[in-house]
Design a protein around this nucleic acid. Sequence first.
RNA 1: GCGAGAGUGGCGGAAUUGGCAGACGCACCAGACUUAGGAUCUGGCGGGUAAAACCGUGGGGGUUCGAGUCCCCCCUUUCGCACCA
Length: 898
Amino acid sequence: MPSHDNSEIATATKNGVPDRTDRPNDDRYDPQRVEAKWFSRWQSDPQLYAAEPNSTKKKYYVLEMLPYPSGVLHMGHVRNYSIGDALARYMWMNGYNVLHPMGWDSFGLPAENAAIQNNTPPRQWTLGNIAKMKVQMNRIGFAYDWSREVTTCLPDYYRWNQWFFLKFYEKGLAYRKKSRVNWCPKCCTVLANEQVVKGRCWRHEDTLVEQRDLEQWFLRITKYADELLRDLDKLAGWPEKVRTMQRNWIGRSEGTLVDFKLDYAEKHSGFGPAGSTITVFTTRIDTIFGATSVQLAPEHPIVADLAAANPELRAKVDQLIAEQRKAKEVGDIGEIEKHGVPTGRYAINPFNGEKVPVWVANYILIDYGTGAIMSVPAHDDRDYEFAKKYKVEIRLVILPISNDPEETMAEPSLPYIGNEGMLINSGAYSGLECSAAIKKMSAFAEQNGFGKATITYRLKDWGISRQRYWGTPIPMLYCEKDGIVPVPEKDLPVILPENIEIALAFGSPLSGLPEFVNATCPECGGPARRETDTMDTFVDSSWYFYRYTDAHNYHAPFDSKTAQYWFPIDQYIGGIEHAILHLIYSRFWSKFMRDIGLITNDEPIERLFTQGMVIKDGAKMSKSLGNIVSPDEMVARYGADAARLYSLFAAPPDRDLDWQDAGIEGIQRFLGRVYRFVLRNAKPDDSDLRRAVSTDLPPGARAIRRKLHQTIKRVSDDFQGRWHFNTCISAIMELMNALYVYEEAAASAHVGRALPSTSSGQALPATANSATAPVGPSQPEPADVALLAEVQRDLVLLLAPFAPYLAHELWEMLGEKGNLLKASWPQYDAALAKEEELEIPVQINGKLRSKIVVPADASEEYILERALADEKVQAAIAGKQIVKKIFVPGKLVNIVVR
RNA sequence: GCGAGAGUGGCGGAAUUGGCAGACGCACCAGACUUAGGAUCUGGCGGGUAAAACCGUGGGGGUUCGAGUCCCCCCUUUCGCACCA
């Protein structure tokens, strides 16, 4: 083995387990030695994991969500990347042209906070963190194509954010509007939601956060609302959970807008600036004859008008607003106690001319629908609860229709919210069925000018302005003469200046830099002011995976042809916390890119996998709980292979993982067993031997071969979709256990010792509990050297996606010369995997009474005959009458007796 | 309140289609090897019993020859949420 400099890595063991390498002829598996050796080999070959640019192979794009460079890798990362890395290696071994890149989501608030706390410039802090994390990732051995690395905070990337922004603007999809933000009067700056703690500024505990309206840039994602919703149906490779969440997030709702005029006959004076009409949104216009009040959100403009002349109402309304805000803060807006205040005014139901009271209620939200509803207590839960509390009239207008004629037309228990019913007490519409009534009544409202059918979405346009420093500058100029002017494409990128003292900045940091703010208008050449807001970092992550396909393109965000080859992403892997925002923005961005002709795919991601959290002692790992497990420490103590193998073994990847330090030791033991087995059994001329495996093996060897092929099947099948890598690794462990027993038995045979055997004199089982057919020789038989060569080779291949360091080492020990990643994934042979004998449980009345061993191809007649002849079965059915015999091929026999 | 998950030995988990509950690993116990063992190898290991019977997948019902798995009700717990009209 070549010598190498491994000082940096190998020394790490010293603070872990005591060093025992002083023992002579040590056969101990030393992960530090093995991993240091391969680490330096891999590091010296930057092309090792490079995707092939012009390949005729089938492509496979596997991607893990890019991390924020906090400076330290945590176990959640290790788990996420171990899943993707295993898949990438598996696909390489299956002959695919694999794209497996990595990058850095490197703009964002923490860099500015670090700047404030440690006085480190954000750029320096960020790039330093990236360097640290890259070392950690490489040490664990993740197979990334670093030549395509994307760092979003560098101008060669963010210039294309700016370019995209200009395209959005060009197409009328970027616009400005006033929007409410959190404002700290002490910092004179905008706060992110996470910077607001219990209504106060995180840096000034004594300062209440205010709400301010600022002009901000928005992207018109709502234009794509319908398509984003519709195309969810195409995403068959996504978890249903995520699709449901996105569906609810988009929140399409078909309904009707209906105008209720404020009543003139009232004595109160004229109307305020909000006018005299309350437009409500309802999905159930068929219930409008049951409307007994109109409810307004406390922040509705008409409420402001009404309250202007009524200080008492104003105070009550303010109280409702406060309740809403508080509920929102503590996150239980759904459990708010319903409160309302009558305004004293009335509105007219346009369908029957009836006057109904107008209320203000805390359960009506200003930013959904029109911020006003018609209240139909008989047919809506919330309205019912409200009406009961405030003694508002409840009027039944729908009767349920049921298949049961008795039930039909019976008065339902209230509220009846079903929409399979018939209208009553509804004038000309009485007798109509609900859905027909909705159509008819919507049309009527529209014809008479007091309403129209409409679709509302819960989805809102994407506000991308951030009043912060560490982000992509929005490429816009404000000229006194020409107004809002986009920066010309040729002037991109607008470089984020670096000579800035964040800690001293007051208000929006960039606005304090005259050399940044002062610009020239490209239209008139006169003075212009530069936009000082930067972009939301979700912009960066919305399209970065396209940049990977062509990371160094200077003339475009990427080459369309190249992207078309790689897209869609075959498998995307990340945390469930990104189920909504990142994944919906990414889909939106792709659709926009398609519409401006950059790409042809409608959706960016074919399959999505969401992995579970890593928890410790029943709680999410966090600094405050002190239950952090550091990957560096694990790697130093047990090696990278053990750390990644354990992160896959401890739980199915889509479930939360309960980290147990003791568990990883078992993994290390297993790796040691594999290592020592190969150390003992590898023969220099293995490659010749493999071809010489006899077709006529003795029973013990046949059983090992069978176990091997069963294992290949189990591991391969899981890669095809189920991804329960924990059971894959179990399967490989089982194979290893069987090999140890086989080896031991063969050694006994060789020296003529008695075989270890079970008391029954039956074949030696692989393990005492082995539920499957016995593995191991029933007669002493020497180890089949050729078979062992074959098994070892396949074993190493099976292990390669999960424990690459050890796999490479063993590969070399077996005398293999070629790159393990280019070696073919082993294929299982169904005939070899098939059991020769089956153990069939025999049940009497569903209770296990005996087990019989039969040839795998035994007929039903034979098996039933054998089952009935069985001693224990005979005893159990003696004197009873056999009612039924259940036979499930390959599974069991159940005899029903009376 | 709504939506989506989860609940199986001392612990992490397995059981892929309704068919032997507890694979694999940890911990623990025993034996072997050893000057030594926190190394290694072998075996044991749900409760219960001398052995059986029997009991056992959060609780209660049900369907079925047969239920961890399907149905109904309930409890606990995790995650998400925006009372969505």
